[in-house]
Write a protein that binds this DNA or RNA. Structure first.
Lengths: 192, 192
DNA sequence: ACCTGAACACCGTTCAAGT
DNA sequence: ACCTGAACACCGTTCAAGT
């Protein structure tokens, strides 16, 4: 961990402003929001944005860390309250809905579970992965989840379900999430 | 159907050139390939590109119609050769692999199964949907597919699986497709 | 009827000059 | 040490002028 030396007062202020402006802009225009516009909203030169956040993804991550961490916390809450199998399903539902409700979140979580060679994995990825691992392993011990699935697979499939639900018109797909999670859980084979 | 009056010779030539150039560019740079670059490759003014293809999606579709139709044909081939349930699974595998192998195809097929209010549905969507419907219904009659799933759901889920597999590094996800299709087919519950 | 390409607006990124 | 904003390269889109 690089220990952050405290920032100069104006730098810290600009940093905060950029985060606020970014959260607004991403919410309005999604992942592709104009960086120039974000700098303008923050009342900051565009160079300052690049100084603090060298890539779009770095900014996206910084703006959404809290929400991502909240997913991890939520996993443990559900894990404490429900039987493991139910907890996992409930969490997947919430994760997918959150993915679709917060614009730009899908891209961020997607990059968190990507393992391409040259890709930058956001720092917040670890907490989600660990949270998923705890739920997955508990459900497997309970015997309600296939023993051969890995936490990363589950997270990638969740990303896939969100992508699938996104194609449904109306409320941006949130209404279809439950259905798709059920289909994945139970499988496409007929119930016996 | 709008009956197309034959194009002027130069128009037809430009149209063809644009399609070739577009196929090349999309293959190299994916869905977001520069339109200006495509016009340049085709040796055509940028206005001409817009005349023939008012939107990026229109161009993408025109460049890939043949491949999309091939998916539909392939569905019937598999349907004739295999038991319905197996045919569906085999087709989903091929569909997902094709989605990932041909750059830009995922976006095109995605828009084909989207039913957002203002979205333009590509014309080639019908043949894929019909093909999927034939496989789905046959498998349901056979009893190897849940009776309550609709063809569109299956297509959207296939899109989702492709998105999930895409997150795996290496060969662009093709190697993971079979696994993900299996997980969807059998479900995440343990085998009994 | 169709084509061309300049013109415009917009965006990402860099960097010299400033404090 | 950090900020600013002009400068550059690039892209999508339109449209007046041309054939």
């Amino acid at each position: 961990m690089t220990r952050a030396r405290p920032m100069r007062a104006d730098a810290r202020r600009n940093y905060e402003r950029l985060l606020t402006a970014a959260a607004e802009a991403f919410a309005e225009h999604g992942e592709g929001a104009s960086l120039d516009d974000i700098a303008k909203r923050a009342g900051v030169g565009s160079g300052t944005l690049y100084r603090h956040f060298p890539t779009r993804q770095a900014l996206l991550e910084a703006a959404y860390v809290d929400r991502v961490e909240a997913f991890a916390v939520r996993a443990d809450e559900l894990g404490a309250r429900l039987p493991p199998g139910e907890a996992l399903v409930a969490w997947l539902n919430e994760l997918c809905v959150g993915t679709l409700q917060v614009r730009g979140m899908k891209a961020l979580l997607g990059s968190a579970v990507t393992d391409g060679a040259g890709r930058a994995v956001p720092a917040c990825a670890t907490s989600v992965k660990d949270a998923a691992a705890r739920l997955v392993e508990a459900a497997q011990r309970e015997g309600t989840l296939r023993a051969d699935v890995e936490p990363m697979e589950v997270l990638r499939l969740a990303h896939g379900l969100a992508s699938a639900a996104e194609l449904v018109g109306g409320d941006g797909g949130c209404g279809s999430i439950r259905r798709y999670v059920t289909l994945l859980t139970e499988g496409l084979r007929p119930a016996r």
